[in-house]
Design a protein around this nucleic acid. Sequence first.
DNA 1: ATGAAAGCGCTAACAA
DNA 2: TTGTTAGCGCTTTCAT
Lengths: 358, 358
Amino acid sequence: MMEKRRVTSQEVAKRAGVSRTTVSFVLNDVPGSNISAETRRRVLRAAEELGYVPNAAARSLVSGQTLTIGLIISHAEHLQVDAFIPQLLYSISYTSHQHGYRVLLETVEDVSKPDAYLELVRGQRIDGLMVLNMRSDDSQLPELIRRNFPVVLLGFREWPGLKSKTFSVETDGTEAGSRATTHLIALGHTRIAHITFSPENYYATQDRRRGYRKALEAAGLNYDPALVKLGNYSAASGYEAMKELLQRKPYPTALFAGNDTIALGAMAAIHQHGLRIPEDIAVVGYDDIPTAPYMVPPLTSVQVAPLQQGRIAVEMLSGLMSGKPPAQNHIRLETPLVIRESCGAKLEAKTASKPLQR
Amino acid sequence: MMEKRRVTSQEVAKRAGVSRTTVSFVLNDVPGSNISAETRRRVLRAAEELGYVPNAAARSLVSGQTLTIGLIISHAEHLQVDAFIPQLLYSISYTSHQHGYRVLLETVEDVSKPDAYLELVRGQRIDGLMVLNMRSDDSQLPELIRRNFPVVLLGFREWPGLKSKTFSVETDGTEAGSRATTHLIALGHTRIAHITFSPENYYATQDRRRGYRKALEAAGLNYDPALVKLGNYSAASGYEAMKELLQRKPYPTALFAGNDTIALGAMAAIHQHGLRIPEDIAVVGYDDIPTAPYMVPPLTSVQVAPLQQGRIAVEMLSGLMSGKPPAQNHIRLETPLVIRESCGAKLEAKTASKPLQR
DNA sequence: ATGAAAGCGCTAACAA
DNA sequence: TTGTTAGCGCTTTCAT
């Protein structure tokens, strides 16, 4: 085990020839304390020389603060295959450090109880909570929020009676899904399939599909449940779902994929089937992950700005933790559709001016 | 802020009609203590009813333990584009929880001092350290290891005088790089390019390139520095590097990409140049990320088993933290080459039996 | 301007 | 078998 060479404030005090109080005052820059410049210098030098860092546990015990944010990732197994979460993670970690907070990663696997994070809160390991990937069945969160524990959600959610206490950073998945689908409709497609990016109990999944359906219905097209398949974050699930869709005759001429990884898998299935993208089947993805421009063909996708989402979420949480609640409860970011080759819009612009008929 | 509704062991004791000591004994299952079954039941019930969770800071303060692992990710910005780290992360988080540890994420950005993790150690926030992505210039680590602070590295590294104290989970990047390159040589290629996956100061980058060079020289081929470009984790950097390589006449007929994301970008450049994969240019990647089978064409790649690496690393660290050092200092995992379409081996097997001449 | 002392919630040696 | 008590290292009020 580690050699016990812990440096305490007592030792710093002795070396500087002052009391522990003075050390604390100097190191924490306590406002009301009038420390002579000379003393202050001596203390700082002693601390420096000894490599003193205050014991975190002792400090938390007395201050009641841990300066730590709990980051809850439900269904963390998706970290293995999803490209969106890592970007968010990076941004959250980066911004947290800037604000002086550490990040404690709490991944919730399917098997264990979903409320594992309650222990973090009750055990006072964290000062605030950031929740990714919320599912419909998360249950203890409202209670926490009711008690004013600082919580920021990624993705919109509200509970009855807690409107003013709920904070989130969000995008409008329904609108984005609708826009993506409408884009395909405008290109002349009528048989448009959809593969969700995750199981049905995720809010985001429901939103995007609702947008898909709304767009169809707004255009007077039939919503055909047989054209909707469930994916599970992975390219593999997108591949399998697309293979099923390709069994249909006539096959769909367009796909709105629930995310870009799903789209990648689906495109592999389309290629393998000997069909061309976008000539035979047009594809639109969601998330606009960094590799989207390098897919074959480059993928048209919905931009969701994970870095910005992470940054804003941390700023909100930081505000809540320091007793300065953000002005807005919900910050909604825009989700523009980035047009590349996979949807066929560029193709069409080049070759013809009338909508393609298929 | 949070309503102060903290439940202390004192309250549990009162409710159960016993002393705090008894509560502590029961809840921690202290061996030597003979608590009556009746008392034990009462205490457990009281704790349950109050939703008692021991204050982590108080417990750490007295026990000297935090049950927290620090996970250091240098150059965390790569989280945005790399697909290998998230898998490792998942595995580390998952296994840590199984062993009863929490994970504190410490991302080190380029700008800040690289030794930020020292504060975690000195401040006794963590009981052990896991280090990803080590670069040649990380400096304070050996000192920590010398003092017997539990550290496990992902990727081999040794320091003079610390051989017996250094623990790691590793793969042999040189051997894997050599194998990948040799595979291409065996397919008849002589102008084989290499794009590194990260800057030169990463050990893993150096290893893979060394393997590439060794394979060339072992086959009597010339090592041409002009065929080696530096990538930076992203598909974008792979794309740019490949575009440069394609300026050469004659262009290389094969590419060993430093990782799969680099390969994806490079393949996009090849397609855009109107060349076929593998007929015109064969490609081999590294990491075998989950999307590799769904690229166009499916990517031949070196398998590195991130989930296994993460699991083993946590088990080693857990052993170190509990005073049971692992039997082996270095655990080396196999890195088989997974043959898919992008290297042309399957193509060749189908069409001809003699090596292609190019 | 600096120091003494109390106490944060818990564990564990020692008493009873 | 259970209770009393002394710290763990730090912050912070109150004296000096």
